[in-house]
Design a protein around this nucleic acid. Structure first.
Length: 398
DNA sequence: GATCCACAGGAAATAGTGGCTT
DNA sequence: AAGCCACTATTTCCTGTGGATC
């Protein structure tokens, strides 16, 4: 019996599903002509053996920042090879998510050294030492270096790195090599956290990526669907709907593509020959749920336990709760899973404030004077069931 | 008007891991 | 082995804060 379980299964709708995955890099970029143009102008100095400008890119997730950057750099590298006037070009990328200056510098050094040489130590050395080493490595190779720092707003102490790097030549740390920094951020307010000196060096060229509107998303989806799906696998109204939903929510191509892919999965599950509006509607729920679950998994254990505590309280009808009550529930839950709880209220409050910042919680100020003092009340912004469900599965896995 | 509640929020200390150089 | 270094996650300590209560 069980041998036949998979016997009849075929991929009916997808021709090449990987085209709808997050890693896929299209070789043609649609709907970003202006940005590509601006980018090209910003980097053209590289071709003439001059110091490259620093470029700063912003825009929300899934609006093509990374895709366009890779596309441009690929083209730039190709062009540099054709020209004599251009120095050798070295491009190194780094995702700075939750990163420190030391680790970023280390990763750049290792990028330059390549796999065949000894890796720079993870710890044990001063950050200034790491910077010196980086400059030495660069000078050894000479040529033009472009450092792409993705999610640069998550880098703590951006100021030191962004101060040192672009000025290395002026300060005599570099003699043969040239540097350009390409900073990518999805946070518009990031600018204000920069020191004034850094601001005007890094921000020589700024390019803003705006969210896609429904029409743009539609043409992106049509493009992808053409290649990823078999002919006539998707009703055109379904594409239109996916584009409209994504445009209304985030304006992100990634979200639109997720909807299409998930819609395809659902259509296959119900043995439908085409993806319909209804499948997209149902995909929207799944995609949303999946996103929440992933975000939860990224949290520290104590962060998760605290969210679970609040979810449990809310499920019991205790609407907004203050931190003291959360602590009690948290201690219970921690014990029931067999973990050690945090001992101080302050620690709980630290986490609560983090979780609020990340958008998991909403809080309101309260002041009951002598009868209750000033405090916050917290509330989940998520469905408590999703939290409890996710937590359950995380505990079972481990 | 003084006092007090129950916190908030920031800074600094502490603890612990891992690893470098000399 | 001693002395530094990076990094993380707490904890300890301190200085507000605003309305209710005395």
């Amino acid at each position: 019996m069980s041998e036949d379980l998979f016997a009849g299964m075929t991929e009916t709708l997808f021709e090449d599903k990987s085209i709808l995955s997050e890693e896929y890099r299209p070789d043609v970029i649609v709907e970003r002509d202006e940005e590509i143009d601006a980018y090209r102008t910003a980097l053209k100095d590289v071709l003439f053996g001059r110091n490259p400008s620093n470029v700063f890119i912003y825009g929300k997730t899934g609006v093509g920042k990374t895709a366009v950057t890779e596309y441009i750099l690929h083209a730039l590298r190709a062009e540099v090879r054709q020209r004599d006037a251009a120095d050798e070009l070295h491009v190194h990328s780094r995702n700075c998510n939750d990163d420190t200056v030391y680790r970023t510098v280390r990763s750049l050094i290792n990028g330059i050294r390549g796999d065949h040489r000894e890796q720079f130590p993870e710890t044990g050395l001063a950050t200034s030492h790491a910077l010196e080493t980086l400059f030495e490595e660069m000078d050894d190779l000479s040529g033009t270096f472009l450092f792409v720092l993705d999610e640069i707003d998550h880098l703590d102490d951006v100021n030191t790195l962004l101060y040192e790097l672009p000025r290395a030549r002026a300060n005599g740390h570099l003699t043969d090599a040239r540097v350009g920094v390409i900073g990518i951020s999805n946070n518009y307010t990031f600018r204000s956290s920069l020191s004034p000196k850094v601001k005007d060096t890094l921000m020589e060229k700024e390019i803003a990526f705006s969210p896609y509107d429904a029409t743009e998303l539609r043409s992106i989806l049509e493009m992808r669907a053409e290649k990823a799906l078999v002919d006539d696998a998707c009703e055109s109204s379904a594409i239109k709907l996916a584009a409209a939903k994504a445009a209304k929510d985030t304006g992100s191509a990634r979200q639109a593509i997720d909807l299409l892919r998930e819609g395809g999965d659902i259509a296959e599950e119900v043995d439908s020959g085409t993806i319909t509006d209804d499948h997209i509607e149902r995909a929207a729920e799944r995609v949303q749920r999946g996103r929440v679950k992933n975000k939860l998994r990224d949290q520290t254990m104590h962060g998760q336990l605290i969210l679970e505590a609040i979810a449990a309280l809310e499920a019991d009808g205790h609407a907004p709760v203050r931190s003291k009550e959360i602590q009690d529930a948290y201690e219970q839950i921690t014990g029931s899973w067999g973990h050690d709880p945090l001992t101080t209220l302050k620690s709980i409050q630290n986490h609560l404030s983090d979780l609020t910042m990340l958008g998991f919680l909403e809080r309101s100020e309260q002041n009951r004077g002598r009868a209750g003092g000033a405090h916050y009340q917290y509330e989940l912004t998520l469905d408590p069931d999703v939290v409890l469900e996710t937590r359950e599965s995380i505990e079972v896995e481990s």
